[in-house]
């Protein structure tokens, strides 16, 4: 028996909008720790890891570990029927091949049940070790989204370079090239507007902008984004999900042939 009640149902709606472009089908795993997902995109260069900790739910009942295969486009269709202020509850019985999404309006005057068929999905779980990153950049998520969008009108790839001067996003294409430098800036009115650069050593890596733009679909979840870089490792782009967890996107760098 599984029953997860999330008062801030809009978080789940935003999570789905953040990942459905990247991943078509995925297994949602429920355990005592929380509600999680790890899935790769079809070309196996990007991976999304979601964790919503059990403490973040108003009610969290998970009698035994359960893996539920879902088509994310279908989940998104279901969740779009929930109001932004609705409380969302996920329910599944042991051995059932369906999951039920229950939507309650804040004043309890409307209650809806949407039952969705589950599917069997073979998924490869990657063992991602904890890594020491050469540079960690924390910046406003809207600013990062703007940079990725702007650069993708010029080129297909972005070089992200971190030095003592700041973090530089560069691209080049047929019509020309572009460089955007963001300097560390902690003298702002609100902490979420700060750009903070923790650098152990300079790092410069190249990534496909198409994936970066896809990651920025998570922007509505958090005012800030954290970008962790190490040479010869995938970049980690992390958005916090309120105080209950995170979405992390991993993207393999482009390598010179």
């Amino acid at each position: 028996m599984l029953e997860l009640r999330l008062v801030q149902g809009s978080l789940l709606k935003k999570v789905l909008e953040a990942i459905k472009e990247l991943v078509t089908d995925a297994n949602f795993d429920c355990s005592a720790t929380g509600f999680s997902l790890q899935a790769m995109d079809s070309s196996h260069v990007a991976l999304v890891a979601l964790l919503l900790r059990s403490e973040g739910f108003e009610h969290y009942r998970c009698d035994r570990n359960l893996s539920m295969g879902m088509n994310l486009n279908n989940v998104s269709k279901m969740l779009r029927c929930a109001g932004n202020d609705d409380i969302i509850t996920l329910k599944a019985d042991d051995g059932s091949d369906t999951v039920t999404f229950m939507f309650e309006s804040p004043n309890q005057d409307k209650i809806a049940d949407f039952e969705m068929k589950l599917m069997d999905i073979d998924s490869e779980h990657l063992g991602i070790p904890e890594a020491e990153y050469h540079a960690i950049v924390k910046m406003p998520s809207a600013e990062f989204a703007r940079i990725c969008k702007d650069l993708s009108s010029i080129g297909d790839t972005v070089v992200i370079s971190v030095t003592k001067e700041g973090v530089k996003f560069s691209t080049r294409g047929d019509i020309g090239n572009a460089n955007i430098v963001c300097r560390q800036n902690t003298t702002v009115d609100k902490p979420e507007e700060a750009t903070i650069i923790e650098m152990q050593e300079p790092v410069s890596l190249t990534f496909a902008l198409r994936y970066m733009n896809s990651f920025t679909k998570a922007t509505p979840l958090s005012n800030t984004v954290t970008i962790s870089l190490s040479s010869e490792l995938p970049v980690v782009v992390e958005y916090k999900v309120a105080d209950m967890g995170y979405i992390r996107f991993y993207l393999a760098p482009k390598i010179e042939d």
Binding site: M40, S43, H44, V45, A46, L47, E124, H125, L126, G127, I128, P129, T157, T206, A208, L233, P234, Y250, A252, P253, K254, I255, E256, D257
Partner: peptide
């Protein structure tokens, strides 16, 4: 030119 590495190159599947 450059090519896109796969995540398998970096992380082993469990």
């Amino acid at each position: 030119g450059s090519s896109q590495a796969q995540l398998y190159t970096f992380y082993q599947a469990l």
